[in-house]
Design a protein around this nucleic acid. Structure first.
Lengths: 261, 261
DNA sequence: CGCTTCCTTGATTTATGTCAACGTGCGTGG
DNA sequence: CCACGCACGTTGACATAAATCAAGGAAGCG
């Protein structure tokens, strides 16, 4: 397992699945070799527009959102390093939601069709991507839980805990990686964005955030915030069970995917 | 294309994808041959429990839900005929959400692992199931949109419109099927359930429903409701774009999945 | 018959939204 | 360099959607 040039975040995540062979990694490396940089604010996918390419976030943050007729915008999900955009592009003619970058981003891009070919070539990669897709679905579930059943302050802390959790997985999934640097706790989340994600007005988000600041859980600065006490935040939102990210260690799964079978 | 003994709803949905060959259908038929009946209230999947089998709903309604520490329950999604339960069972050791039947149900069941083998056998079936999975994700998106960005009455009508839409797809997807019977518009949705799904108190759900009744859009009866005017409901919630259910007609997709390639 | 589940309605409370105003840092263009 | 605009954060006063509390009715069911 040599040094990875790109998509460390993805490999860190996939490590949990421990399904891929070296061969698969080189296939993935080739698939993800086409890297592009984009500036903040770029709309990578239009709402209702076609999905030309599948992308992987190598660095930066994005949002998936939908706009209502009254002009309000609902953020469906935050897209972090190691997350994919348009994973199902080959199967759907258009995207219901749009994707917009909230920081400068580095993306790996390739035509959707190539994913099909890659999965044919290595069923293990196919399974790994389904696993990623299943995690996406679980994150949406979490979001529904937050918005549907929690009050404002709890929603916010719960969201922060989830994102923190995801960042840890993406950034230090492997045991041999050094401890996460201070910077990792910084999040480019404006209160506006938090409001759009959680169905709250920015004014109310502000008031709740001030409370979290007052309790020493977070720190607010221009254009973002910093987690000071992740465990405290977790306690604050009642430690609602986060989505499990463990993979099935089923030996029959590996056998089933073994090409020699 | 002979008469289907089971899972008409699934075939109706898959028809939109027009990807499967007769051969695939007989494979699926064999996979789905194991049918079981369960009574109302049965908990098919425990929250946080293992996912022993993958299931397909042949008839009846279920809910996917999660329970919070304070005892409140959030319904994540309604599971209708043609929908799957535990599709990713082979990839995850446990289920975040539980599944409970809200009517008597007839389910097709098989061990999760068999799905892997089936996908190896027919990549077209694999693609079709990913397509189903992608639709599930889109439904969750819709749910987030409702809960996060709409007011109570709009949420309710939007939910009803979506379910109506899904039922139509499952029940009459094929052109050659007779018009949908009156019964199809009946839904076993108590106001309690609607509240748990949309993050509203049952009292408030009741008041909003009464309004919809007053406008002649729905009819309420013991243990459920009936859609009288789907188009009216759609207008009521501002006709927010429903999730597109069209499949990609990409010829390269079919080529990519062709075993002869 | 009594129990349970579901629907219904009124009175009151509360969480959150709206409106409005102001501060502040930051980039940009003159 | 300054001046301006802009995006973001902050705060107060007020409005309102929705929750809560409470009580009762009506249909199914054992």
């Amino acid at each position: 397992m040599g040094q990875r040039l790109v998509s460390d975040a993805l490999y860190n995540r996939l490590q949990k699945l421990s399904l891929l062979e070296d061969e698969d990694r080189s296939i993935l490396d080739r698939l993800l070799a086409r890297v592009h940089d984009y500036p903040v604010g770029e709309t990578v996918v239009e709402e209702g527009g076609p999905i030309a390419r599948t992308r992987l976030i190598l660095a930066g943050w994005a949002i998936r959102y939908r706009t209502l007729h009254d002009g309000s915008r609902q953020i469906v999900n935050f897209v972090l390093p190691g997350d994919s955009i348009g994973l199902y592009g080959a199967l759907f003619p258009s995207s219901d939601s749009g994707v917009e970058l909230v920081t400068d981003c580095r993306l790996a891009e390739f035509p959707c069709d190539e994913l099909i070919a890659t999965c044919r070539q290595s069923p293990r990669i196919g399974a790994a991507l389904c696993w990623i897709g299943g995690q996406d679905e679980r994150m949406l579930e979490q979001q529904i839980l937050r918005i549907g059943a929690m009050n404002a302050a709890t929603r916010i802390s719960h969201l922060l805990v989830e994102i923190h959790h995801r960042l840890l997985l993406a950034l230090q999934g492997r045991e041999d990686v050094v401890r996460i640097p201070e910077q990792a706790l910084w999040m480019p989340l404006t209160q506006q964005l938090v409001g759009e994600a959680l169905g709250l007005s920015k004014v109310h988000v502000n008031r709740c955030c001030r409370r979290l600041v007052h309790e020493g859980l977070i720190e607010i600065s221009r254009g973002g915030l910093r987690l000071l006490d992740p465990e405290g935040l977790d306690r604050f939102c009642g430690g609602e069970r986060p989505s499990s990210t463990r993979a099935s260690a089923s030996p029959s799964l590996e056998r089933g995917l073994d090409p020699e079978t």
